[in-house]
Every structure is written in C-alpha cells, then in structure tokens.
Simulated assay, not measured.
Amino acid sequence: MNWYTLLVLAVGAERVAELVVARRNARWSRARGAVESGRGHYPVMVVLHTGLLAGSLLEVWALGRPFHPWLGWPLLAVVVAAQGLRWWCVRTLGPRWNTRVFVVPGLPLVSGGPYRWLRHPNYVAVVAEGLALPLLHGAWLTAALFTLVNAALLTVRIRCEEAALESALESAHGPAYDPALGVPPAAATGPARARR
C-alpha cells in the first residue's frame, strides 16, 4: 500500500468522522424542533463523495497515473488546508453543523470563524479538495468529473440551504422580512449556513 492510498483512506476516515458528528448534531437539532430540507439530493451527495475517493484510487491504479512532485506537493498542501477549513467550520458551528440541511427556529446566524468572510466556506473546502486530491497524483479524469457533477450538486444544495434559511426568517419575522434591516433572524443549520 503506497502513501497515496493511505492519504485517500485517511480522507475516507475523515468522512466517517463527519458522519458521526453529523448524526449527533442531527439529534441535537431535532430535539430543538428542527425541520430537515433537501433529503432528495443527499444520497447523490454521498455517492459523489464516495466516488471521489474510489475514482482517485482507481484512476491512479488502473491508468498508472504518475506523481509529479512539482504539482503533487503543493496540491497535498491544498488537501490539508481544505481539511483545516472544513473542521474550522465544524468547530465554529458547533452542534448546528451537519451534512444535512436542518432549520432550527429562533437561532441567530453564526458570524464568526470563516463565516465572517465567506457565506459558504465548507463548500470552498469541498471544491478545493475535489480538485486537489485526485490531481495530486495525476487523476485528472476523476478531478474533472467530480468538479462537473459537484458544481451541479452545489447549485441544488446552496439553493436548498438558502430557501431553508429564508423560510426560517419568514417564520420568525413574517413574509415582509427584509434582512437588510438588520433584524436578528432565525437560523438554519448545515455546513454552509449555520451561520446556521
């Protein structure tokens, strides 16, 4: 087993850790009256992320993709930075972070950590990792396919999260609520907006 296989397995273990945290946080959210949105796209997300890991290994093994140090080492740094950003999001959101989309009525938006600068920082980590992990060992087909499918999926996912947040705001403040007025809103949970 070479170092790249170990790296991909380590990222897979990180995904399992995410699911454990997400399951615990889902119980926390549901206990506070959370409503889940976007169940239909969630299985696609699971398959896509599993496919990223499997595709990265299979393409390298089956097609003999070489490791080019001039590209691979900087991309390894991107993979590590993406993990750091992801877990910064998890830590910042605390029990409101999830791989699913939940709305917990009455919670304020989180505006600290990476949410101070980015609206969806967790997805920045996903995009960076989805390119860097396969490309660091030359698996450009996997990187391209993941990026294309992930772009479509993130379009659906972000719309789902924004709609869930808007629904929470309207429930808390009425349909005429204008976020520009600065009224403290309710919040949705999920990796991107719990700022949710």
Rank of each mutant, 00 (worst) to 15 (best):
V46Q: 12
V16T: 06
L133M: 00
T99V: 09
C89V: 15
L169E: 12
V35I: 12
E170K: 14
G33I: 11
P114A: 02
P114Y: 00
G182P: 13
G94F: 08
G94M: 14
L85V: 08
A81C: 06
P105K: 14
S171H: 11
A54L: 15
W28P: 04
N150H: 15
Y115K: 05
V46H: 07
R119K: 15
D178T: 07
A139F: 06
A188N: 08
A144N: 08
L75E: 02
R30M: 10
E162Y: 08
L6N: 10
A194L: 10
N25G: 09
A172C: 13
L63H: 04
A34L: 11
R30A: 12
G72W: 05
H173D: 06
G64E: 13
A152K: 05
C160I: 04
V8K: 01
V80Y: 09
L6Q: 13
P184H: 13
L181K: 14
A77E: 07
L136Y: 01
L76R: 01
T5I: 10
T5C: 07
E161Y: 06
W73M: 09
N2W: 05
S56Y: 01
Y177A: 15
L118D: 06
L107Y: 02
G40K: 04
V183T: 15
C160K: 04
A26W: 05
R86C: 00
P105L: 13
A144E: 11
A54C: 11
Y123C: 10
V127W: 12
R30Y: 04
W28A: 10
M45C: 10
H68Y: 11
R157H: 11
Y42G: 09
A132Y: 00
L148W: 11
A168W: 01
W73N: 03
R86E: 00
A26N: 05
T50D: 11
P134I: 07
E18I: 11
A13F: 13
G174I: 07
A82M: 08
W87V: 00
L93R: 00
R30K: 14
C160T: 15
L181E: 14
V127E: 05
L71E: 08
L107R: 11
A54M: 14
E129K: 02
V149F: 13
W97L: 01
S37L: 12
L148N: 06
V35R: 15
G12C: 14
L141R: 08
V11Y: 03
L6H: 08
A172P: 04
I158S: 11
T142Q: 00
V103Y: 05
L148P: 03
A151K: 01
G174W: 06
G138F: 01
G182A: 05
G51D: 02
G12Y: 04
H137E: 03
A128T: 06
G106D: 09
E162I: 00
